[in-house]
Write a protein that binds this DNA or RNA. Structure first.
Lengths: 173, 173
DNA sequence: TGTAAAAGTGAGTAATCGCTCACAAATGTA
DNA sequence: TACATTTGTGAGCGATTACTCACTTTTACA
């Protein structure tokens, strides 16, 4: 990966996340990255290729976060790790997550199946803890994780710790 | 409001929600609405004016939903109504909500203050019920409502009722 | 009915879009 | 050094963009 190539990626991520993919022109990316516009197409073929390159990096980061949870044996610890997920996202990864969250609402961009392994492992954790409806509990927890991540990405609340503790208490954690 | 004016609004809402605001051209809206492109600008001044007209309708719908909750005196009933909110959205309003949710991620579009009255009234309800941290509880519930609405708008799950019941049980409802 | 205002049209505008391509500079390898 | 490959440039392409405007049609009302 060239230095200019990385600059294109980071600049595009920033602009796509802040202003939207469709609203960001390749010429703007090039100008802001200090690079000729042609270079974008040399390296990434077209504008969508540029987006895919960014999303591929994002997916790798997501996989790392997910695998740590999935490999947890103890059910209570697994649930705790899952609901802490939105709270441990590093600020330097905010742009990446804002972009992926924004793209969810674009047609054909959202794949709910990506969360299936997490959903499965959560369900089994709730089963082990004898919850009445493990499937619904898993779905519910995923909904909350999504809502919490949204809130943290859009307007970091001042009482993060209290919110997390309140949530934990609902699962006796 | 003219018939063609309404047709422009409904068509634009559909396209903006499905493909995004920036990705939808005014010519496409006009073509699909069976209207000359110039008429859009006659009625709504510019593309952003068209969006604002749509969002104004959306805000009125939102206010109706909110006011019913806010005017509820009994704290338990208020909380119940709040967490049922995402589950009672009518399918014909999905497009409208998808658009507003998608626009949250665009710069300068999101105003968290819109939820402040709801947050306030929820906090006071949790206070009356002697919850340990009413402010955190209110924030938490709003996060869930957001997550649930997102899930329902993106991929209607098959076990809606079970999820809602599971959630209600966490608040002894 | 006469007429002014409002609604509606569609060709036309400059600007910008994503993208190509001929070419130059830098780099790796022998 | 010689040369092939990769990296990088920027002018330029046709298509599309948001928007204007001179014009016609419809509507409202005295």
């Amino acid at each position: 990966m060239t230095e200019k190539q990385e600059k294109i990626l980071s600049t595009a991520l920033k602009l796509f996340a802040e202003e939207g993919f469709a609203a960001t022109s390749t010429s703007k990316v090039a100008k802001m990255a200090g690079v000729s516009e042609g270079l974008i197409f040399r390296h990434f073929k077209n504008k969508d290729g540029l987006l895919q390159a960014i999303l591929q990096q994002a997916e790798e980061s997501a996989k790392i976060l997910m695998s740590d949870i999935i490999l947890t044996a103890e059910p209570k610890e697994l649930i705790r790790k899952a609901l802490e997920l939105p709270f441990i996202i590093a600020p330097q990864e905010y742009e990446m997550w804002r972009l992926t969250y924004a793209l969810k609402w674009q047609t054909n961009q959202y794949e709910s199946s990506k969360l299936d392994p997490l959903k499965l492992v959560l369900k089994s954790a709730f089963e082990k803890l004898n919850y009445a409806d493990p499937a619904a509990e898993a779905e519910l927890l995923l909904m909350f994780i999504d809502g919490a991540a949204t809130a943290l990405l859009l307007h970091e609340p001042n009482n993060k710790t209290e919110i997390l503790n309140t949530l934990k208490s609902k699962y006796q954690l």
